[in-house]
């Protein structure tokens, strides 16, 4: 049996603290982090900076598993942080490790330190 050393996680909020198809923002080690909840209750976290012109993705409209930046309408894939559609490959909002345990959202501790 191998021992897997898991990263430490930090509890940030309950799943229900974020509206469905919505997002909230938390201070991270290198700038704000956007935590998203989709209509299907999936949770994603990205550095809260659009790859296009640094818009706050946490304030965009969430649809399916993507978010539309409020500044210039660029679509960002929540799972990868990549720009989508015609802008694909033009940049990426870094992903933050996130998980949901028993209805609570936890972020990788290293992203918050």
């Amino acid at each position: 049996m191998s021992t897997i050393l898991e990263r430490p996680w930090v509890d940030v909020c309950a799943l229900t603290d974020i509206p469905q198809r919505g997002a909230r923002r938390i201070a991270g080690a290198s700038g704000p982090i956007a935590v998203f909840r989709t209509g299907d209750d999936e949770v994603f976290a990205l550095v809260d900076r659009c790859p296009h012109k640094q818009g706050p993705l946490s304030m965009g409209i969430v649809h399916g598993t993507s978010v539309t930046c409020p500044l210039h309408g660029r679509n960002v894939d929540l799972a990868s942080g990549q720009l989508m559609g015609a802008d694909a490959g033009q940049g990426c909002a870094p992903r933050i490790e996130v998980r949901v345990v028993g209805g609570r959202i936890e972020l990788a501790a290293e992203a918050l330190r």
Partner: peptide
């Protein structure tokens, strides 16, 4: 209100 507040300070480190 939650629309205008960021998420607060982390509450606890999950033991693992």
């Amino acid at each position: 209100a939650s629309e205008f507040q960021g998420l607060g300070a982390p509450l606890r480190v999950a033991a693992e």
